[in-house]
Write a protein that binds this DNA or RNA. Sequence first.
DNA 1: TCTATTGTTAAACGATTGTTAAAATAATAA
DNA 2: TTATTATTTTAACAATCGTTTAACAATAGA
Lengths: 107, 107
Amino acid sequence: MMKPAQVVKALAALAQPTRLAIYRLLVTSGPEGLAAGQIAEKLKVSPANMSFHFKTLSHAGLVESTQEGRFVYYAANFAVMNGMVDYLTENCCGGHDDSCKAPTKKC
Amino acid sequence: MMKPAQVVKALAALAQPTRLAIYRLLVTSGPEGLAAGQIAEKLKVSPANMSFHFKTLSHAGLVESTQEGRFVYYAANFAVMNGMVDYLTENCCGGHDDSCKAPTKKC
DNA sequence: TCTATTGTTAAACGATTGTTAAAATAATAA
DNA sequence: TTATTATTTTAACAATCGTTTAACAATAGA
């Protein structure tokens, strides 16, 4: 189970329009990810601003980067999102209510 | 599907240690919820600070309050959390990967 | 009524955040 | 090497956030 501080960090990383858009784009892009420049162009964000937000997402563990030539590819780390969801839903309703269960399958 | 701005608001509401603790307490407490004072005592937070954080959580739709005499009971609104999770996981990996599915059941 | 209890509101303050522009770094190509 | 491309870093700034203190409702009971 994730620690509260790590969950807060992940939630904070996603709690910003540009970063949420970046993350969603990476979630739909799958494990290969996208180059920083592609994302910047698609979302109309300046390179400097992109780097700023990538750092926040990376530090939260939500995305990972791999350099390929001149390009830096970013991809979503699904495990951290799942950990976040697990943390939020754990022991939902005290676990007493059958109609109130945490998610069983995730990305 | 929730709008991005509403998702950002919900994420931001949870992206703070005190508010995350409040919310987790309410998630485990189920539909009846808890009185503001009970939460404040349990989490060792001042009443004024509690009100401040309740307002943020309420405004994000994550909790709902009902007054009973002098007491104000707060309870988690699970639908909003589920909407948030749905938004984050929608079209995961482009929907192409069978080993990569969004949660099917939630609180 | 008067008093205690429960919770909210308002103002002030320091701390953190997001954006921009400019400079710097890293990797490739000519 | 020099130039070009891709991304990061730095510094500056306004804007937002979280905590504290004090004052303010609203209800309940004597």
